[in-house]
Amino acid sequence: MLTKRIIPCLDIKDGRTVKGINFENIRDAGDPVELGALYAKTGADELVFLDITATNEKRKTLSELVNRISQNINIPFTVGGGISSVEDVQVLLQHGADKISVNTAAYKNPQLIADLSKEFGSQCVVLAIDTKQETDGQWYVYLNGGRVKTDTLCTDWARQAVDLGAGEILLTSMNHDGTKQGFALDITATLAGTLSVPVIASGGGGTMQHFTDVFTKGKADAALAASIFHFKEIGIPELKDYLAGQGVRMRK
């Protein structure tokens, strides 16, 4: 049987792993390649590397980093952060990335998703959505790392992106991100229950029970978290043992 996936996420700035709380307050959490290799050894099912560096040198440093990751890590990994063209993706795949994630650039130019899936296959195109539930109860799409609100509903954008060829959805709830109060179960279940592609839930994982909830109530195919792993609050082996004990299918 196919298992649910546990995915540590490494936010990268200037070559170091960092983690913000509610998209701000960045703390240093070590060398991303060392950390990624450690996670791979201890049972992570996949890794996500998001580059939040915003300099001109970015493209070159990112492809060098991807190269190092690929040489040292024996599980699949996704790279994201500022990817906006077929050429960007070509370079990252040539350096060994398995999948890429797109966010703001894809929203501004949805054709990018179609172009990427045609060129490299849907399996390689992850659409990241940052979403926030407003006081009207609706979940809206946010851009630019959560700084810019749009009037588009998360469900509408996700459906459109899958029709265009996105192979997976990485859904981050801004209300929950960094809070350690649990994942956004409702919107995750809505997407996971209606889309034909896997949904990776992100934002809010703080206890092992939260992961059980996101897989059972949230129907997520995969769960992503950062600081609880980086700061060793929860170990991947103990988390997977716990989930298996709760009846969630896990790779051991």
Binding site: D45, Q123, L195, P198
Partner: peptide, 17 residues
Amino acid sequence: KPQQGTGLKVPQIGWNT
């Protein structure tokens, strides 16, 4: 062929035995 109601997505992505 996607199977309605099984939660099995297409493509298959992930770890299987």
